[in-house]
């Protein structure tokens, strides 16, 4: 079990050692994001820009016009909120091959609390034209995504979780943008999850099985682009799907799935995610429990939903 941020640092160090186009721009958080691994291993690929995220995006854009493939590294919240105009103008609009490594994504950020929790990023970033938006489930998918993004000729936004989760996939995993993955077969209820929340949702599937409920789990790593036909095919004839995400219930995975299914008709979407309010500083287990994203809370919500719909 390995944290995505550690995988990111190691993968980027490897990529940078073999490709001079790869540079990492750090907003003075390298020891947290693990950009320090790149700085130590390939000093020439590491560019400190200081605590100035807007300037970081602008410089990355400028570098990209000369053939560089820059990675932005800082807490995601400072990129998708503080520097959102720069991402919109200089990266999304221009299709610049800038990669946003959004560290400490979602709710769990080492007790830094609500100021540093980025639970609106998927809503913001997937609304930007040209932007590929990815939330990997675990260390294996994350590494595949980082390596795919390194070659992609356009802007990429990737969530990079701070803490390790139980792997959903193994080393044989291969990534293709837009493709949903069937993680568990089931007949009683269909769950769709993204990011590291898929790992916890897979645990919820086990808890449901103990209660005699057979749950299908679809993992959707790419919020944009999306192979909607494949997603609908995997959903099959389910009357209800339940989305689960470490993100606001507004505009993220639940929003995306609702958009797709409302155009095709018939399927009800229940969205499990963070309520439209501010959270707090606390250890991960406390936050996941209080805000409804622990395996137990997700399983309980599914049981309640099934009871209601009977």
């Amino acid at each position: 079990m390995k944290a995505q941020r550690l995988v990111w640092g190691e993968t980027l160090a490897d990529l940078a050692a073999n490709d001079q186009r790869v540079v990492v721009l750090d907003g003075d958080l390298a020891t947290s994001t693990r950009a320090d691994i790149v700085a130590e291993a390939v000093p020439g690929a590491f560019i400190e820009v200081g605590i100035a995220e807007q300037n970081m995006v602008g410089m990355a854009f400028g570098l990209s016009t000369l053939g560089y493939r820059p990675w932005l590294s800082t807490f995601g919240v400072f990129l998708t909120h503080r520097a959102v105009d720069q991402l919109r103008m200089l990266v999304s609009q221009t299709k610049a091959p800038v990669r946003v490594a959004a560290a400490y994504s979602g709710l769990l950020n080492g007790s830094s609390g609500k100021t540093h929790q980025d639970i609106e990023d998927l809503a913001i970033m997937r609304a930007m034209p040209n932007m590929t938006v990815i939330a990997p489930a675990d260390e294996h998918e994350a590494e595949a995504v980082f390596r795919w993004a390194a070659e992609h000729d356009g802007p990429v936004y990737v969530r990079v979780a701070r803490d390790a989760v139980s792997p959903v996939f193994d080393e044989s995993y291969s990534f293709a943008p837009g493709v949903p993955h069937l993680v568990a077969e089931g007949t009683d209820v269909t769950l769709i999850s993204t990011g590291v929340q898929t790992s916890r949702t897979l645990e919820a599937v086990s808890l449901l099985a103990q209660r005699g409920i057979s749950a299908k789990l679809i993992h959707l790593p790419t919020l944009k682009p999306l192979d909607a036909d494949r997603l609908v095919e995997l959903i099959g004839d389910a009357q209800t799907v339940v989305t689960v995400e470490e993100h606001s219930r507004i505009g993220g995975l639940g929003g995306l799935v609702s958009e797709v299914l409302s155009e095709r008709g018939g399927t009800r979407v229940i969205r499990i995610g963070l309520e439209d309010r501010w959270s707090e500083s606390a250890p991960n287990d406390f936050l996941l429990d209080k805000y409804g994203l622990s395996p137990e809370r997700v399983a309980a919500a599914v049981v309640d939903e099934l009871a209601r719909s009977v």
Partner: peptide
């Protein structure tokens, strides 16, 4: 719009961003 107009080296319009883009180009050079 740098993607549309020949001779335009950077897309601009939201004020304050061009110097940073230029710094990136100069650093790249």
């Amino acid at each position: 719009d740098m993607l549309l107009t020949p001779g335009v080296d950077a897309s601009t319009g939201s004020l304050g961003q061009g110097l940073s883009a230029g710094a990136g180009m100069a650093l790249g050079a």
